[in-house]
Design a binder for these strands. Sequence first.
DNA 1: CTCGATCATATGGTATACCATGATACCATC
DNA 2: GATGGTATCATGGTATACCATATGATCGAG
Lengths: 228, 228
Amino acid sequence: MNKTVSDIASLKIVSPPVTLREIALERMRDAIISGLFAPGQRLVERTLCDQLGVSRSVIREVIRHLQAEGLVDIAKQGPVVASMDWHGARQIYDIRAALESSAVADCARAADIETKDKLRLVLDELDQNSRRNEPPTVLDVTTRFYEIIFAAAGHDIAWEIVSRLNSRISRLRVMTLSTTNRSVSGPAQLREIFAAIERNDPDAAAKACREHIAAAARLAESLLQKED
Amino acid sequence: MNKTVSDIASLKIVSPPVTLREIALERMRDAIISGLFAPGQRLVERTLCDQLGVSRSVIREVIRHLQAEGLVDIAKQGPVVASMDWHGARQIYDIRAALESSAVADCARAADIETKDKLRLVLDELDQNSRRNEPPTVLDVTTRFYEIIFAAAGHDIAWEIVSRLNSRISRLRVMTLSTTNRSVSGPAQLREIFAAIERNDPDAAAKACREHIAAAARLAESLLQKED
DNA sequence: CTCGATCATATGGTATACCATGATACCATC
DNA sequence: GATGGTATCATGGTATACCATATGATCGAG
């Protein structure tokens, strides 16, 4: 891996081939994540064709993709929006704890000035939005925070997995983030993770990260049981 | 949840709707995993139609699914079999170490007589096959061993992730398992994990599991670098 | 001889048509 | 009135047709 190669690699055209499928995929995923399509709701192909204004081929391929992502289940009479019980959510929080703490630790090992600056910037942004109590934006910024961490740690496959898992518990995340307690403690915990990264302390960073997720999981559990 | 309910639940028809898509998906996945389709090879839709004897709709939906699974990349002129470099493989081994050691620990906490019996049975089978040096079967049995562990630990989502990751490094796994050293040390390490589970010792089980995977990763690294 | 332009073909993207199956509602018969 | 059968319709599965584009080859001009 010499300089020339990386220079050439950086020349790669990053044009996202904006195909109908890609657009429809994003729309559908957003619709499911945002709760516009409720869990358990049937996804009738022809209806979706009308709603999205595309043909069935597109819809079907999108559904296949979402099925593989775990956002859609195939019942016996067709695809439905996957629903999430506490057993599944608990597992997802556990997996996140494992993967995110590992990424955070590796990030703390490898973090340079540049990475730290980027993280600090995102955290400042989070503080501002948090004061205004805007859940969707907070979720966005939190995502960016972790995205930087996973990238700095070189854990791009783990990031892919975590992103996918997060979309499966997105409703829970929105609920936990909009809890008033959380809007105070959440940023504080992220700051703690950042502080450990800043002084390149992997163990402390991993520990803070695990606590952060454990707190979110506890909150999610109470909310989920209240919902029943 | 009383007895009658579970009895009634067990009556549920478990017929897997054997659709052309499902068959084609399995075939294609096997073909990629087994290396019949080499990494980087173009997957031409119409060619696959002829080879599998199905229509393009089926092939395309299957490709979407495999794309979401990470077995297929979409290049600018169409889908190709995803290839795996050491950077990616390393990450996958790390993720496996995290998820499998966690599952093994939870399994050690929860394991009852029945689970232990099932694990012992699989290990005996592994010993027999290992002596005959049959790599594909060894891989199969190893997979079953972990499947039992993840099921006993209640980590079914993590199992899904691990299965998918394993298919992405299947070639590496075949190579590492067919190494003579490994056919001796591999079963021994699984035995060690099992011993820890049998005496319900989560920490020892997790430790043995991490070592098992670290050994496989080292072997994979040397093989991968030799290949270049 | 080389460079370029144009045409042909291969390939993926999209839409639509047809078929098999399963669900539901209504009707007839016991 | 209840039960069983039948017909209709909704829905997913499959195949195919059409279009846009990119790639490669061939032919002509400089």
